[in-house]
Simulated scan of single mutants.
Amino acid sequence: MDTVGVFSYTIDGCLKEEFLQYEIDMAQDEEKQIAFCVSGWHCPIERSKNPNDPEGCKAHVSRKFIKECWHKCGCSMGCGNRVIQRGITRKLQIFFTHEGKGLGLRTLEQLPAGAFVCKYVGEILTNMEQEERNNNAKADPTVTHTYPILLDGDWCSEKGLKDEETMCLDATFSENTARFINHM
């Protein structure tokens, strides 16, 4: 979310209740999610498709993000608006899951609502590149799992994105602890 100088985090590194409620409301009401760029002819999505002669904005999901402070703000690493930069501060454990499902990640403490756990690290690929990687992985005995997360899909109101336009984050070869988060 564009914070416009207002911090999105509490001093102890959790997302503020107002931010969480806003995101919940947006997720529950699809009509609220669709937006047009303010200057319709300068839509970054359309400009990325054709930088020299972009079409007008066709509407897309309103993307919100959090801006964190950084070294040029003049604040210290203790600033409440520097959460991701401090890395993992919660007690986490990688463990063997039941029934031979592999490894998982769990917390060793109760997490408050809006707590930052860890960032998900990986390579950004198009959906087509990911599909090709998955097909190659099936033939490679050293690759037992792939770890993609879809970054965007079906976010244009007129039609979904093409596979070559849809992006995902793949932690198969460049990963961190977050790779072990699963849906157990």
Results as ranks from 00 to 15, higher is better:
S48W: 02
R82D: 08
S62R: 04
E30L: 07
F7A: 15
L151H: 08
C73A: 13
N127Q: 12
E55N: 15
K159T: 10
G100I: 06
C79K: 00
E129N: 13
T89F: 05
E158G: 13
N134A: 14
G78R: 05
A35H: 04
L105S: 14
K72N: 12
I66M: 05
Q130V: 01
F36W: 07
G104L: 01
T89K: 12
E165D: 14
M167K: 01
G100N: 11
M26S: 12
V4G: 06
G80N: 10
E123V: 02
S174N: 10
Q33V: 00
V143N: 10
R179W: 07
F116E: 02
G56M: 08
A171E: 03
C79G: 05
T144D: 08
E132F: 09
H71R: 15
V6I: 02
F36R: 02
R133M: 15
N127P: 04
R63Y: 01
K162P: 06
E131T: 07
S48E: 12
K91V: 03
E30I: 03
R47S: 15
K138M: 11
M77V: 08
R63A: 02
N182G: 14
P54T: 00
I124Q: 08
E165I: 03
C156E: 10
E175A: 14
R86G: 15
L169R: 06
T10C: 11
S76K: 01
C69L: 05
R90W: 04
E164T: 09
S76M: 04
Y120G: 12
T166L: 11
F96E: 11
G102Y: 02
P141W: 01
E109P: 04
K91A: 13
C118Y: 00
T146D: 01
A113H: 09
N136G: 14
C43F: 00
S174Q: 10
D163H: 09
G104P: 00
T107W: 03
N127K: 06
Y9M: 11
Q33C: 05
M1H: 05
S48G: 14
V117K: 04
H71E: 00
H98P: 10
S48Y: 01
C168P: 00
Q130T: 03
K67M: 14
S39K: 12
L105K: 13
G100M: 03
V4Y: 08
N134M: 08
K64H: 07
I84T: 08
S157T: 10
E123C: 05
E165R: 06
T146R: 06
E129D: 14
Q21V: 07
F96P: 05
H145M: 06
D29E: 02
F96D: 13
G13N: 09
D140H: 12
P112K: 15
K101G: 13
T89G: 11
H71P: 02
T89M: 09
M1G: 09
N52Q: 11
M128D: 15
W155A: 15
L15Q: 00
E165F: 03
F95A: 13
M1T: 06
R133W: 08
F7N: 09
S62L: 06
N135W: 01
I24R: 13
E132P: 00
L92R: 09
T166C: 14
N182H: 11
D29W: 03
S39T: 09
C57T: 05
G102W: 00
D140V: 13
F65S: 05
I24E: 14
M167F: 09
S8Q: 01
I88Y: 03
E132M: 07
I45P: 03
Q85T: 00
G102N: 02
L125T: 00
